[in-house]
Nucleic acid binder design. Structure first.
Lengths: 233, 233
DNA sequence: CAGTGGTCTAGACCACTCT
DNA sequence: GAGTGGTCTAGACCACTGA
């Protein structure tokens, strides 16, 4: 584990535990240097991560302060799996595996070449508080992962990629649009009335630049909420 | 201007101009050190910004590479004004100032205290290609900006804050939900049918920690698209 | 093996804030 | 003036990649 990562994690834990509550002042660069016996740039890197993540803000001449925290909703801007999300929010969550089959990546994903991309399609329905609210369709490219067993698909795909296969996920590109619920949506989510669906389509990339999967995540519009933290550029 | 900012801007310009096209390799840390006569950490900081912004990816032992770029849609995760967006996308854009008046911040914004917050309400309608697609309601706190003249409100609020008033915007917190178009939406956007509206509510903070404004931005659901770049944490 | 990015050090000078 | 964060330097060692 890197030094700056350790410092970051310890500070973040204290923020989440309320030891640094809202508006509290974090230790200064020099205080962190002494406490952890590191160079100043190392302690600054740890704090810079917290700034990036929206936990604290730094004010020149004054100090580093904890930002008012209520980021309890579905985050769009992070690559985060459903299981990680549910664990973080302490929600009663359940995932039902609907189907696994071989299927090319659909053309709604606007990947460059117009050649069919062989993939494994995994359809899952996500329940929060026993209500079906999300339909996930993952297309895992056969090029990268030739076969997926049914057992592991009921767990997290990210867990499979990272822990079992040793692949490292680097980033994703997501597109968010609004669509009207189609017949399949209504059926899978038990909808009786017309409903807007928030559609999040993403391509996930490995750290060597290869695409590993395309994902379509369809959220009930009336259950969807996202909270974002954004910095001024 | 900082050295790392200069290097960042020059690299970004070359990416946007196509001098570093997709998958192209950027100069290495050491090449940038020599070209700009800076220390390695300085050149690395410039590239780190490009990584943060999703323009490039770094692979250990290989190099730094330009990522496939098609981020041409409405960005949620940046604090970016409508004018900046339209300019970047080269869209035919027009803004119509609907009203300026004194009004407390509505309670839909979930700010802590339940005391009324006096503000200036600015209602603007945004046209893209001569079609009304966005309704913006800004509530600028009287505490920070006591008075807003009608003239400046037809321009960008951010321009007013930063250039005329010398205020520095630091970050924003945005909430995204889906609602059904209300009567006022239908009227202002000339909608005849029921329509989903993407509602983005944000609080904008200054670099001294004060809130300067609350904003509600209502987008036609069928014209809304957002492309996000997200890193794995 | 040389080249690359990742981490880390021990300094330095500056601008800003608060007392 | 003391304390803080912002920038910058000139090194160092490491892990990984590709020829």
């Amino acid at each position: 584990m890197n030094k700056y990562q350790i410092i970051h994690d310890e500070l973040l834990k204290k923020i989440n535990d309320g030891k640094y509550p809202e508006d509290a002042k974090l230790p200064s660069d020099f205080a962190l240097m002494n406490r952890y016996h590191v160079a100043r740039e190392t302690s600054r890197k740890a704090v810079a991560m917290l700034v990036d993540e929206g936990y604290v803000m730094r004010i020149k001449g004054r100090g580093t302060f904890v930002i008012n925290q209520n980021r309890y909703s579905f985050p769009i801007s992070h690559v985060e799996s459903y299981r990680e999300l549910a664990a973080r929010l302490n929600l009663n969550e359940r995932t039902q595996l609907d189907a696994i089959s071989d299927k090319d990546v659909p053309l709604v994903f606007d990947y460059g070449e117009q050649v069919p991309l062989p993939a494994t399609e995994i359809v899952r329905i996500r329940y929060l508080d026993n209500e079906p609210v999300i339909i996930d369709r993952d297309y895992v490219l056969k090029d990268v992962v030739p076969e997926i067993k049914s057992l592991s698909a009921s767990l997290s795909l990210f867990e499979l990629f990272e822990q079992k296969l040793g692949l490292v996920i680097s980033y994703a590109k997501k597109t968010i649009t609004i669509e009207t619920a189609n017949t399949l949506d209504r059926q899978l989510m038990s909808l009786t009335e017309p409903m807007s669906i928030v559609v999040i389509r993403s391509e996930t990339f490995l750290n060597d630049g290869r695409i590993i999967s395309f994902t379509e995540s369809r959220h009930r519009g009336d259950r969807f909420k996202s909270v974002e933290f954004s910095r001024r550029h």
